[in-house]
Simulated scan of single mutants.
Amino acid sequence: MKKVLLLLANGFETYEASAFIDVIGWNLIDGDGSTRLFTCGMQKEIKTTFNQKVVVDYLIEEIDVGSFDALAVPGGFEEYNYYEDAYSEQFVSLIRKFNEQNKTIASVCVGSLPIGKSGILKNREATTYKVGKVRQQTLKSYGANVINEPVVTDLNVITSWNPSTAIDVAFLLLELLTSKNNTQHIREIMGFKPKNN
């Protein structure tokens, strides 16, 4: 079983997280059955952007990185204090540990910023939210080579530039964990147009 850890900060964007939950879950039930997703955060109850409440499966300190195959990091809103958790040492340290074990790390929108703050994007290509350029400048300040593309993959790290990319990032993660054919099957039964590349 391939296990995905969804790392949630207070103020995370629900849509971005749900893309991972749905794609990995659909694969468990209607795909090759090889993937499961678990959630974690700095506290058991997390408030999302727009203040919905979510209870996570694990606290960060309970995580054994070796028992997971990938990490997924949705972005969030500054107005809902996303960066308080996302920039904390405990949060970025977990990202570093996944990178040290060469696990896939997939992020959406500003989910790339705590990855950048962790130091692992130095001299690597990445992207982030591009409206207003502030977030891109922040990512660049962490040493990343910022690319103006919707989804950017450099070695084991996937970054993307806004919520619309969440489903593509989730499907890319599924493809890396399973296969292209299996991912095309899940795309089709979820009603998404199959990719031709």
Rank of each mutant, 00 (worst) to 15 (best):
F68S: 09
K53L: 12
C40D: 01
W26N: 04
E13H: 10
C109H: 03
I186K: 01
T165G: 05
Y58T: 13
Q137V: 11
T35E: 10
V152W: 05
K44E: 14
E13T: 09
A9K: 00
Q43G: 14
N27L: 14
S34G: 10
T39N: 11
L174R: 07
A70P: 00
V110G: 01
N156H: 15
V110K: 00
E79K: 04
Q90A: 10
K180F: 12
V146K: 02
Y83R: 06
A144G: 11
I24V: 15
S18D: 12
I60V: 15
I167D: 00
L121V: 08
L172G: 02
I189E: 09
A9E: 03
H185I: 06
D57N: 13
K180L: 09
S93K: 11
E84C: 09
F98K: 00
A19H: 03
S160H: 09
R96Y: 11
L6Q: 09
M1I: 14
T49K: 04
I60F: 10
S18R: 09
K133H: 12
F77L: 15
D85T: 15
D30F: 05
S179Q: 05
L139T: 04
E62I: 10
T104R: 00
V73K: 04
I60P: 07
R187L: 05
M190F: 08
Q43Y: 14
